[in-house]
Amino acid sequence: MHRFANPARFLRLGAAIMPWSTGVAVLSLAAGLYFALFASPADYQQGESVRIMYVHVPAAWMALFIYTSLAATSAIALVWKHPLADLAAKAMAPVGAAFTALCLVTGSLWGQPMWGTWWVWDARLTSVLVLFFLYLGHIALNNAFDDPTRGARAAAVLAIVGVVNVPIIKFSVDWWNTLHQPASITRLAAPAIDPAMLRPLLLMAIGFTAYFVSILLLRIRTEILARKLRTLRYMQGAEAPAPAVAGERI
């Protein structure tokens, strides 16, 4: 049963990682919320509304990080046909879409009091909206075909095409005049954020990432079960269980 060998190894690895990632997620999110809402100062210009940043910015980072992972996973699926890659891509897309939606909603809630508008069509905001639609398109394509392998292939192509949007989002604030301000944290320079504000920001970012790891492991497990179900149903329908026609591509 070479087909199941890989998922079995993955399931063991996942079961070993899951308690750790979940623990890190719970602890970082609890500490992050404490610092974000109680033990951090108000901003000199934005007052208490700066606390929205501790949700908005980590959500934006997750939206980009998950999309980059999605594109990399899709490339692995298309080039090496790794049996788990399609399942991982399918498992992560809705989580990425949820973080992108959170980023857009909190950005709107922050923009209204600070900028004076819920939404503008500047390069940054528009490219993030495009990212959200890319996620939705990926989810839709994955479910659009009767044959799940065809759906996965179409979705993988979309994910790879959409990856050009990632640098556009990242550098939009530097390339064009936008209403959105440029990045505060760059690798080369000291961050333009006070340490007391950086702490909740990073804690929330670690918490979101660890949360994503746990959720992803859980969702890949679900996808593995779903694939087994399809195989078993196919074999049941075919009456005589022939191992060679398991309906799955290796």
Partner: peptide, 30 residues
């Protein structure tokens, strides 16, 4: 929240809703 309550609290409510919503949906389908 210094007058920003209507913006700050819904932001955190949205974050909690997304984290818990995705978790529940994932556990249910598993």
């Amino acid at each position: 929240m210094g007058g920003y309550a209507v913006y700050v609290w819904p932001s955190y409510a949205a974050a909690v809703a997304v984290l818990i919503g995705v978790l529940i949906a994932s556990l249910r389908s598993l």
